[in-house]
Design a protein around this nucleic acid. Structure first.
Length: 324
DNA sequence: ATGCATGAGAA
DNA sequence: TCTCATGCATA
């Protein structure tokens, strides 16, 4: 039931050749960044020695850049031989003014996690609306700003859902992102605040977003589709925020204050280098290979799998595919 | 600002 | 199982 906002893929492509994601503009760019994949290795070697060569080659590659670190990179500290899981800590009092509560109706809630191994609980917090409060453009001691609400349905200007292909121009998206950030800062609102305020906007199927997402939007580190989908929403917020700025509505702020806990395994540098080498050879290793790699690097299989997924996702970010 | 992770939905 | 959109936890 959760359906995040998604301009979901109007076009679905076979997993094998799914690249022509966007218009056509990047078709070439996309193709460009996805270099290599030269060796036609492995065919039907299910016999013991299946990917020994792959592993060996990747390791060789991984080793190439390590030894003589004369002055090339700012590499510093290192790590223990290895360690599967690792660091975790708790965040304390994050003064984010955010929250939403089981509001009226329609709050697409992601839902609770099934208790997996790690055991992370209570993640979603929602809380009361945060209406009214508007942070004065006084940056320094910026008090936990209170997000702004916006009269939904009051189209201040551009009818968003007009052109299906509107706002899909990479150039324009980039320009918007930049303007957005500047004006946001001008309003003295943090990325986290924006994300929280979005919930108050109560747009169809649009809930709050995290600081991470807002940050990624501003830095274009999201997929093109994602950027395009978020643009209208952020535009709406910006309009409302600036309007509210003129007016004046002051409101106190709320402070949720919750505790979180969740582990984030940390992959050490050497292991990471190996993974990168593997990735260059095979961006999409089979489950068997992932298992082999995991064993070699002494990492959990799932960690390796997720790493590859994230790596693939990285390739698709605007920054790289639309680089000009 | 980013790394590792979850989960819904499509193959 | 992968992709995609997102997020917590971190550096």
């Amino acid at each position: 039931m959760t359906m995040a906002l998604n301009a979901k893929q109007p076009f679905t492509m076979p997993a094998a050749l799914q690249e022509p994601k966007f218009s056509s503009l990047h078709a070439s760019a996309e193709a460009m960044r996805r270099v290599c994949l030269p060796a036609p290795q492995l065919q039907g070697n299910i016999f013991g020695s299946f990917d020994e060569s792959l592993l060996a080659r990747a390791e060789a590659l991984a080793a190439v850049d390590i030894a003589p670190h004369a002055k090339g990179h700012p590499h510093h500290h290192h790590h223990p031989p290895f360690k599967p899981d690792a660091a975790f800590s708790a965040m304390s009092g994050v003064p984010c003014a955010a929250a939403a509560l089981p509001l009226p109706a329609a709050l697409p809630h992601p839902l609770p996690h099934p208790a997996l191994d790690g055991g992370d609980l209570l993640e979603h917090l929602s809380s009361p609306l945060a209406v009214g409060g508007l942070p004065e453009p006084l940056p320094p001691p910026l008090p936990p700003a209170a997000p702004l609400a916006l009269p939904v349905g009051a189209p201040g200007g551009p009818p968003p859902p007009a052109a299906p292909e509107a706002g899909s121009d990479p150039r324009e998206l980039e320009a918007f992102a930049e303007r957005f950030k500047q004006r946001r800062v001008r309003l003295g609102v943090t990325q986290a605040d924006v994300g929280a305020a979005l919930a108050a906007l109560q747009l169809p199927g649009v809930g709050a977003l995290s600081q991470s997402t807002i940050c990624r939007f501003e830095s274009l580190t999201l997929s093109h589709n994602n950027m395009a989908a978020l643009r209208p929403v952020l535009q709406a917020w910006l309009d409302g925020a600036e309007a509210a700025h003129r007016d004046r509505a002051a409101g106190p702020d709320l402070l949720p204050g919750a505790e979180r806990k969740r582990k984030r395994t940390s992959i050490a540098a050497p292991e990471k280098r190996s993974l990168e080498a593997f990735f260059a050879l095979q961006p999409r290793p089979s489950a068997e290979k992932i298992a082999a790699i995991a064993e070699k690097l002494d990492l959990k299989k799932n960690v390796v799998r997720v790493w590859f997924c994230n790596q693939r996702q990285k390739q698709k970010r605007m920054k790289y595919s639309a680089m000009h």
